Amino acid sequence: MTKKKSKRGRPRNDDRQTLNGVLYVLKTGCAWEDLPPEYGSDTTCWRRLKEWSQDGTWERIWRTLLSQLDAQGKLEWEQAFLDGSFVPAKKGAMA
């Protein structure tokens, strides 16, 4: 007779709920600690965003969304940025 492996620890939070929590923080700009409880743990959302960024999941989500929006004609590519990093120049810095 074989024994079933028992799962230990807390069950994994739903990916959809966690994704919605991440999107809430990114859209509103609120602190992770201010994430409403319906999205689950703020720590889980932050940790999952970090994991998804490192393993390429976040980029796949982003590319899928862009493809869907493009297919629906909802993107204006002439107004899009691939990577928008804006850093103010320090006083006296050369232009």
Rank of each mutant, 00 (worst) to 15 (best):
W77S: 10
K74G: 02
D34Q: 11
N13T: 12
D83W: 11
L66A: 08
T43G: 03
M94E: 15
S85R: 15
T2P: 07
K74E: 10
L19V: 13
P37E: 12
D83P: 02
S85G: 05
T57S: 03
R10M: 10
L26H: 06
Y24D: 05
K3P: 02
V25G: 02
E33W: 01
D34H: 09
L65Y: 04
E38Q: 12
C45V: 03
V22C: 11
F86T: 10
F86L: 13
S41W: 05
V25T: 06
F86Y: 12
E76G: 04
P37F: 06
S41Y: 05
W32S: 03
P36K: 08
W46V: 00
L26I: 08
K4S: 10
T43L: 03
G73N: 13
R60T: 07
S85A: 10
E51N: 06
M1I: 10
S6V: 14
Q79E: 12
L65K: 04
T28K: 10
C30T: 09
Y39K: 00
M94Y: 14
P11N: 13
A89E: 11
Y24Q: 06
Q68I: 10
A95C: 14
G73Q: 11
T28Y: 09
S67N: 10
E59Y: 02
K7L: 13
D42S: 07
A31V: 05
P36W: 08
L23D: 03
K74R: 15
T44H: 02
N20S: 08
N13I: 08
Q54Y: 00
T44G: 00
E76H: 11
V22Q: 04
K7F: 12
D83T: 11
Y24H: 15
T57P: 00
Q68C: 08
L65H: 03
R63I: 07
K4V: 14
Q68R: 06
R16V: 14
S53C: 02
L75I: 15
T28W: 04
E76L: 05
T2A: 13
M1Y: 10
A93K: 13
E33I: 11
K5L: 15
D42Y: 08
L49G: 01
V87Y: 14
E38L: 05
L75N: 05
K4C: 11
M94G: 10
I61L: 09
R63M: 08
W46C: 04
N13Q: 15
S53F: 04
K3F: 13
E51F: 04
R60W: 01
L19I: 15
G40F: 03
D34E: 09
G73S: 04
G21F: 04
A71R: 13
L65A: 09
G21Q: 03
N20T: 07
W58A: 07
S6K: 14
E38C: 02
K5Y: 12
Y24L: 05
L65Q: 05
R60S: 05
L23G: 02
T18D: 09
R48S: 01
